Amino acid sequence: MSLYFAYVMIGLSIAMPVGAITVEMTKQGLKNGFMHGWAVGIGGMTIDVLLILALYFGLAKVLALPYIQMPLWIIGAGFLFILAYDSIKNADKDITLTGEKVNKSLFKTYRNGLLVAVSPGNLVFWVSVFGAVLADSYSANESSSFIIVAMGILTGILLHDIGLLSIVSITRKIMNRHMIKWTSIVAGILLFGFGCYFLYEFYIDIQSFF
């Protein structure tokens, strides 16, 4: 159990820094409530779980190849630019104040979580976190350790998401439409910034590759 709780804390600490998923969760939580912010988080965790399974079965070596990582930076940047554009363009749309009925589909916000999570930063994170564990997990005797580590990190991320969205839900009660609109615009600018960072990393990789 000590191994599990240790990796719960690691999952919490990893999720704390503001990233693209956190920005999208906060935006959707403010505009449409806890469940929509939660749908973004679940979308991100869906990719996390799929990556853990893929890494367990040997994907880590493939993702570590430079010519595999480089196109992923471009793909990730493209996804973030699309979300950033949508966030700014529709900043004053789909806003539901506390007590009003939410009309936006949960699936759309879940899809946004999937798009944000399919990024090189997320892929490289899982490769680095599980790299040391994978070396031992290929043997049958150590496979249980890999599962404990994975569950611990996912639990930590889950606790972070619940805590963040609880704060967002409370804050949302005192915000009006104008404030939420500008929050969405700021979120779009931040997502655009993350997309530019991905392009920068692609440029750095290209320079080092050649």
Rank of each mutant, 00 (worst) to 15 (best):
N32T: 09
G33K: 07
H36T: 01
G37M: 03
W38A: 11
G44A: 14
M45P: 02
I47C: 10
D48L: 10
I52A: 12
I52V: 15
A54G: 15
L55K: 02
L59Y: 12
A60V: 13
K61S: 14
P66Y: 10
P66M: 04
Q69L: 12
W73N: 07
W73S: 05
G76P: 03
G78L: 10
F79P: 05
F79R: 12
F81I: 02
Y85C: 04
I95P: 02
T96I: 06
E100L: 04
E100F: 03
E100A: 09
V102S: 08
V102E: 07
V102A: 12
K104D: 00
K104C: 02
S105V: 03
L106G: 06
F107I: 12
K108N: 13
R111C: 08
R111F: 13
V116T: 10
V118D: 10
S119K: 02
V124H: 06
F125E: 02
V127A: 14
V127I: 14
S128R: 00
L134C: 07
L134S: 07
A135P: 01
A135H: 08
A135S: 09
A135M: 05
D136E: 14
D136Y: 13
N141G: 15
N141K: 10
S143W: 01
S145V: 11
F146P: 06
I148C: 01
V149H: 00
A150Q: 09
G152K: 08
I153H: 13
I153S: 12
I153T: 11
L154H: 08
L154I: 14
I157W: 04
